[in-house]
Design a protein around this nucleic acid. Structure first.
Length: 252
DNA sequence: GCCAACGTTGGC
DNA sequence: GCCAACGTTGGC
């Protein structure tokens, strides 16, 4: 059977939750190479992870940052298994309501494949989805491309941190990442900073001997900013009582 | 099992 | 930092 396609979100900017930085940027990912996707605390996202199979293809997305968008391509390395961080009291996404006898949260391992040669900003995808024909800089995606983007959960279901990506949308994203053509301000993370690498990142870098920079697809590679410290992936929710995020009140 | 209140996600 | 959208909770 052929591999399925997915999109997974991570936060490239530092954000401290329970005393720990939950940041995980494309730079961190590239350095670490393979990481357990812990911290997902939303039932729908969890169910999708359970459907994933080794070899499935993944779009790595920068969320909750200045310039959100697709930063890299990855692959499912290991199928769903219990997310042990749910039982770790010190973990940002500790969930006191679950117990080891009955795992509630799961995660998969994901391996970095390559950076998008051109970071694909959410703003671009939204512009594409808003029209009936592609903006001229990306005329090459055609009307079919527009339709494929319109159907992406990314543009019509903002809050899901793990989502399915249809094959046609996958192809269009790949094309955009490869060809670019719009103004590409680069990824939106922020600060370079020579040594703020995360422990995990440092360890991985030492081991592999590479720091960053290889693996880029064709050209520009969105080197940008970024950086690193440590982090966790997705936010979560489940309502129960997960970690407070920042708090926003309101609305109703 | 409905639905109003509440809390979070996450773009802008 | 604001706040719209939407998921979750809990009263009934």
């Amino acid at each position: 059977m052929t591999a399925k396609h997915w999109l997974m979100k991570a936060e490239p900017d530092s954000r401290v939750v329970k005393g720990k930085d939950v940041k995980f940027s494309v730079d961190d990912f590239q350095t670490i190479k393979t990481t357990p996707w812990e911290g997902v605390r939303n039932a729908e996202a969890r169910n999708l992870m359970k459907e994933m199979q080794t070899g499935d293809q993944v779009l790595f997305y920068h969320s909750n940052c200045k310039n959100p968008g697709i930063a890299a391509f990855a692959e499912v390395e290991k199928e769903a298994y219990p997310d042990y961080t749910a039982w770790d009291e010190t973990h940002p996404y500790y969930d006191p309501k679950t117990d080891k006898e009955k795992p509630k949260w799961f995660m998969v391992d994901v391996t970095f494949k390559a950076r998008a040669a051109n970071f694909v900003p959410l703003a671009l995808l939204r512009r594409i989805a808003a029209a009936s024909e592609p903006p001229h800089e990306v005329a090459y995606i055609g009307e079919e491309g527009v339709n494929a983007i319109k159907e992406m959960a990314l543009v019509n279901r903002g809050r899901l941190s793990v989502q399915r990506v249809e094959l046609n949308a996958w192809g269009i994203i790949q094309m955009l990442a490869e060809k670019g053509g719009w103004d590409n301000p680069s990824s939106g993370t922020s600060k370079p900073s020579a040594n703020s690498k995360s422990l995990k990142a440092k360890k991985a870098a030492k081991k592999s001997g590479t720091a960053d920079g290889d693996d880029v697809l064709p050209e520009k590679a969105d080197k940008s900013t970024s950086s690193s410290t440590r982090k966790r992936k997705t936010r979560s929710d489940d309502g129960e009582e997960m970690v407070p995020r920042r708090s926003s009140r309101t609305k109703k």
